[in-house]
Nucleic acid binder design. Structure first.
Lengths: 333, 333
DNA sequence: ACGGCTTCTGAAAGCGCTTTCAGATAGCCA
DNA sequence: TGGCTATCTGAAAGCGCTTTCAGAAGCCGT
């Protein structure tokens, strides 16, 4: 097709390429002619040919555990922001909290020839690391910190511990956790560990019956809290893996005649759109997904373009205080 | 790289290609040798070269107005489902309810060489249609019906009218609408028109002060309802463009001391996750996003593979009755 | 007007696959 | 075993760009 443009403009394909890629050093009249011819013909370069020739695909891949999760959508959209500015496309895939699936999806993207890869978390299939290394493209992990790999995220254990400490400062002593699936999910796991350690540091413990793992979603939150109540003395406060889970737990609490925060303090994760509008408004750990995405995008672009980068970028989560947390009814409880 | 595999297996690249693409007619021993060599070398085919050679990119593009909207995320994820099964990748982009931006994004995808394109709605930049035609790839529109283009969707006007009729059957006579942005958005526009016509058919009218257009989100819903109350006699029922908007409106109603559904019936759109969990549970028009996505994916794949398809697939929306709607306090009101 | 520069330009060689086409090999029957 | 067909296989020609390299054209000063 570039041939057609060349013919029409009376130049060679080399010149067409030079003009269309904004190279200097083409005489104005020829440049004009090429522009016009391309316009007239509605010329659209063949991406595959260009990619083959330049060995640049101009796309980066991203594999997230769940594309329907607000935090991940936001990170994708902010990564895309940055990529687009640099002329790159984002190709996203869903791994569904499963290392094997993640490997499959990522391989798929690698085969496509992406120039960079964004992953979530610090646990991945060993083969995946091998393939990425072999392909030679830059990779960045997000939402958690890593000892060895490039990453943009925060210390999940520390931020969850902060929430636990806040609850303990309020006087809570029986604190529960409802997390999403922890298998193949270092973020969820780290949060629970962080909470358990914070409790331990003050001589408390996370009772097994107050440590619940459920699948995500509002329904999961309801089930989770129901399950928690089934196990002996109820907690006076809970920390949930997402705001959806917190929402579900609050609904279940109310259905059982427990008032929030009177009988139960609730903390969520993510600061979703609806969190401030729940009744009561939800205290939550705000994860700066957009900032994480921007940083991750910048990181990848920089490495693709051979610019220096810092390996680890920390974008700390933040405890947003709202009305779903309060001191327990009886402080000694 | 295929050369390396060929050398290692003691065959030609032609044979390597045949084996790796599952062609019959390669002797078992050579096939084995190729497989092993590919495995050993961790061979990953170069997608660009393959695309250039086959003139198939094995990817389809999708441009949605807002990637953070639940309905669109769901449709993307279900389209991807189908594509993946057929060996295709989904490349998604965000258009932000703007025809120019949509054109830009879609062109970007077209340049990438996608083999098919999914759009939302029936209003697009005229140049976009021209470019799609020139590129010769199949395109399918979603979420609304079209007179001329391939589409998978439903009659937005009719489904909204159904909601209006339901409210009128309950006895409501002052019905309001809070929609998202209607510019460049045939779905939103059609819904309002459908409601206005349904009202007109029963001798009522959609008062201008009860016809509110806001930006999406819970905050938008609150603002929208506040605005509506500012304009004279309040409605006894409202139909909202999304469940988020409905949520926002309900919050504002409660803040004003109005009870739902006692003083105000509320209907949303989408049947989001949280809709059944609101207080009261939200009556809403369920849009079968997943089914739309599956059908759209199947449609594109079929056309890419040269199989016959029906141009128009209707996947009707459904009115889900919950507790946020009831007869008005005084039926004559 | 001409030599010596600099600036432009086009021919051609890839990029790494797929696929055709013709030749090599294997299989079969007489 | 020889001849003929049916299977396999590899050489080579693209796919549509980019980019190198050498030659053409333009510019300048004398």
């Amino acid at each position: 097709m570039a041939r057609d443009v060349a013919r029409r403009a009376g130049v060679s394909t080399a010149t067409v390429s030079r003009v269309l890629n904004g190279f200097a050093g083409v005489r104005a009249d020829k440049r004009e002619a090429v522009m016009r011819a391309a316009q007239d013909l509605g010329f659209v370069a063949n991406g595959a040919a260009r990619a083959l020739s330049t060995r640049r695909f101009m796309a980066v891949g991203a594999v997230v555990p769940n594309i329907e999760n607000e935090a991940f959508v936001r990170v994708l959209s902010s990564v895309q922001d940055r990529l687009r500015q640099a002329g790159y496309t984002l190709v996203a895939a869903n791994a569904g909290y499963d290392l094997e699936d993640e490997l499959r999806e990522a391989t798929f993207l690698l085969e496509r020839g992406v120039d960079g890869l964004m992953l979530v978390g610090d646990i991945h299939h060993p083969d995946l690391y091998a393939r990425i290394a072999r392909s030679g493209i830059p990779m960045v992990q997000t939402f958690s910190l890593s000892r060895v790999h490039s990453c943009v995220g925060f210390d999940n254990a520390a931020s969850a511990a902060r929430a636990a400490n806040y609850l303990m400062d309020l006087g809570h002593r029986r604190i529960g956790v409802i997390s999403g699936l922890r298998k193949d999910n270092d973020r969820g796991g780290a949060r629970v560990i962080g909470i358990a350690q914070a409790l331990a540091a003050r001589g408390l413990r996370l009772a097994p019956e107050h440590d619940i793992e459920i699948s995500y979603g509002i329904g999961g939150g309801r089930d989770g809290f129901r399950q928690m109540l089934a196990g002996g003395l109820p907690p006076t406060a809970i920390i949930c893996g997402t705001d959806q889970i917190a929402f579900g737990a609050m609904i279940e609490a109310r259905a059982r005649g427990l008032s929030v925060p009177g009988d139960l303090s609730v903390i969520g994760h993510n600061d979703s759109d609806f969190a401030p509008f729940l009744d009561p408004p939800l205290t939550t750990i705000r994860i700066h997904s957009a900032e994480i995405g921007h940083a991750a995008g910048d990181h990848l672009i920089a490495r693709i373009q051979g610019r220096p980068v810092v390996r680890l970028t920390e974008i700390d989560a933040e405890l947003i205080l709202r009305a779903s947390t309060a001191p327990p009814r009886r402080a000694a409880d």
